[in-house]
């Protein structure tokens, strides 16, 4: 059935056991994003070190499984990479989510985030999946100011 392609095991796993959750110090920028239609929210902190390396992405928030699992996957994918590398992932993820289920995901770029491919078929849920990623993009921009 349709939902089974959306609630992938990996998504449920991240929802039940979120990685890197909780706000931590030190950080360069903190942002708060909300999804007004469903009330999902996230607070995110980013710490960028020498050579543009993402040293920590910490977050807290509430919402549906899709929005919470997305934040957990994001934490795993971004921490330890360079800002430039992670922004490429953000772009690819955004392209996938906005593709109405018709876009082929680039697994090499997205890694575990390909599990969200099924969400793209549900316009009402795309914003849930994007919440953490948009917050991350915002935080990175601010941290470089």
């Amino acid at each position: 059935m349709i939902a089974e392609s959306m609630y992938q095991e990996l998504i449920l796993e991240h929802y039940k056991h979120p990685q890197g959750r909780g706000l931590r110090d030190p950080y360069d920028a903190e942002v708060h994003h909300v999804n007004p239609t469903c009330g999902d929210e996230i607070t995110m902190r980013v710490k960028v070190g020498d050579g543009g390396k993402v040293e920590d992405v910490s977050y807290d928030g509430q919402g549906c499984s899709i929005s919470q699992a997305a934040a957990s996957v994001l934490h795993e994918l971004t921490t330890g990479s360079t800002v430039d590398e992670t922004l490429a992932v953000v772009d690819e993820f955004t392209r996938l989510m906005q593709g109405r289920g018709k876009v082929e995901a680039d697994e090499d770029v997205l890694g575990d985030a390909v599990a969200f491919a099924g969400v793209a078929k549900f316009p009402a849920r795309v914003k849930c999946a994007l919440l953490a990623w948009m917050a991350y993009k915002d935080a990175v921009v601010r941290s470089s100011k």
Binding site: M1, I2, A3, E4, M6, Y7, T37, C38, G39, G63, C64, S65, I66, F122, A124, R125, C128
Partner: peptide, 23 residues
Amino acid sequence: GIHPHDVGQILDDNFGVAVRVGH
């Protein structure tokens, strides 16, 4: 522990049960 959007989605997709979720 379960967000209404997840409840509504699974009810609809797996069972054809139409409920409203949100405020």
